[in-house]
């Protein structure tokens, strides 16, 4: 089976919407319903967050959703159990995102094998540095057909962006500005020089812009400078609202595009 991320970018060249949510939030068993509802609303790619007690790169919104998810009982084995039959229901590209420690405890190789078995397409582990990935784990990820997606930031030197691009095969996650997730200071789309600098580099992989993208405006502006954008904290906030889960999802996603 061709990696679904590759297929996606081959078919669609612009305005891609990727959505992140924390598995186990707001309720333990919301994972599959959220995925299916996101797909129904035309989202292109989904990042399923594996909650961690100490998420260093995340702001308060994702921290809190992670705390609640862990209290609800979310674990990697539980998540795999929930996703066991997901490919019977949807072919949307799925990426698992989390921190290195829980994956290490599960066992990196076992994690990758299980992810492949379920039909996961990619993995993001922000605190696994490129050099350690290449030295210890690259073989395992590739054997299991998983795209290992890396972050770049406005401070990442060009040479390092090229190095990252050469070791990955899904997309390049362009962190919009120097911040943790969920900042809405408006810095997110201000860095157009950086977006355009990366766009002009002619990388092998397409770029998606994330961190701080939170509404129609910022989503639209990000899409002007990359293949698409990633929304996390703003979606978590939408999920936190009173009312019906499906209704919350569809009104948030529709608000981005209409």
């Amino acid at each position: 089976m061709e990696n679904r991320i590759k297929t996606l970018f081959a078919e669609k060249q612009q305005g891609l919407l990727s959505v992140y949510f924390t598995a186990g939030f707001p309720n333990l068993n919301d994972t599959v319903p959220i995925i299916l509802e996101l797909e129904k609303n035309g989202v292109d790619l989904i990042e399923v967050g594996m909650p961690f007690s100490d998420p260093l790169a995340d702001g308060p919104t994702i921290q809190q959703s992670s705390d609640i998810a862990l209290k609800n009982g979310m674990t990697i084995p539980k998540l795999f159990e929930q996703l066991q039959d997901i490919r019977k229901h949807t072919q949307i590209p799925l990426v698992l995102m989390g921190y290195l420690n829980p994956v290490m405890q599960y066992g990196v190789e076992r994690f990758c094998q299980k992810a492949k078995e379920i039909g996961i397409d990619g993995v993001i582990l922000p605190d696994l540095p490129l050099s350690d990935y290449v030295r210890e784990f690259k073989g395992i990820f590739e054997e299991n057909g998983l795209s290992k997606i890396f972050l770049v930031t406005p401070q990442t030197p060009e040479q390092r962006i090229r190095e990252i691009d050469s070791h990955t095969n899904g997309f390049v996650y362009m962190v919009s500005s120097a911040s943790t997730t969920g900042s809405t200071t408006g810095k997110a789309v201000a860095n157009t020089d950086y977006f355009d600098r990366v766009a002009k580099m002619g990388l092998r992989n397409p770029g998606l812009i994330g961190f701080g993208i939170h509404n129609k405006d910022t989503f639209g502006q990000a899409c002007n400078h990359a293949k698409g954008a990633i929304i996390g904290s703003a979606f978590i906030k939408a999920l936190s609202q009173e009312g019906d889960l499906k209704q919350n999802i569809s009104s948030f996603i529709q608000s981005l595009r209409n």
Binding site: D54, L70, N101, Q105
Partner: peptide, 21 residues
């Protein structure tokens, strides 16, 4: 503690079976 990663370093770390600190 068991081997794990905290604050940027691989070291001994008090954690649950699931790797939560």
């Amino acid at each position: 503690g068991k081997e794990g990663v905290i604050h940027g370093s691989r070291t001994l770390l008090m954690q649950t079976e699931d790797g939560q600190v």
